[in-house]
Design a protein around this nucleic acid. Sequence first.
DNA 1: CTGTATCCTCGTTGATACTG
DNA 2: CAGTATCAACGAGGATACAG
Lengths: 149, 149
Amino acid sequence: MEAIIGPGKCPDVYDRNCPSRGILEHVTSRWGVLVLAALLDGTHRFSELRRRVMGVSEKMLAQTLQTLERDGFVLREAHPVIPPHVDYSLTPTGEDVARQVASLARWCETSLPRVEAARSVYDAQKAASHSAAALGSPGPDTGTARVRQ
Amino acid sequence: MEAIIGPGKCPDVYDRNCPSRGILEHVTSRWGVLVLAALLDGTHRFSELRRRVMGVSEKMLAQTLQTLERDGFVLREAHPVIPPHVDYSLTPTGEDVARQVASLARWCETSLPRVEAARSVYDAQKAASHSAAALGSPGPDTGTARVRQ
DNA sequence: CTGTATCCTCGTTGATACTG
DNA sequence: CAGTATCAACGAGGATACAG
């Protein structure tokens, strides 16, 4: 009997020890997202993925593919020929996640202008409040009200 | 003029240097996903989030919230009272992403059994092929065919 | 309560070289 | 071509202490 505190429901990503967090981290990992999205438009070979997902090293691509294969998201088919030929594709389950993460990735692309605008505003406000503080300028009242306890 | 190779489209997550990758990494970051999901059901204080997202340290929660605020996903409202009281909520843009990552998180929870089953199969096959190799057992033909070139 | 600052550790990542 | 092995470096992340 280990569970001192009872979680609301068993698979709970908010729970520090719930295994579902591991899955979430696999599919949202730096390269996992991009590999899943890349496989959404069909079977690809190792080197094709390597070119498509720009910036990934051989090591990380191999590692990512193994993790996704083990979780049942990616199907690996090695053709025993020389030189080696290995095809990677999505399982039905993998297509499910892939659609979600690909959608997220596309959302990030389209939201880029909006986000960069938000960053400008944030940075400007930050700079303004810093220089104001440095000058001892009052600025908008940042006075602290006291409450009991 | 820096772009030697012309990308297909400007905001492209597959491009190593595209800023959209940064956004993707922010929203899919270890704690970013959970914080966004947690804020989906309304405004929360710092300590509430800390308790809700179990396992996050103060440092990482603060850092995550700052990143998400700068990107325009999270709204921070500090009430100038003692003791300090700060409310975090989602912006309209933030709600968009939050819905997507929360959906992904829920998917991971419900898919947990399926994934664990897949892992068992994978590990069993791995163990079987290893012991077969160690024994020099033939097993299913893994012979290599030669192709020209 | 809500942070920031510091230090420190550990895992992830990348470069390189090598194997089947 | 498709990896694996090894090593080095960096950065995320955690613990602690302290400030507003």
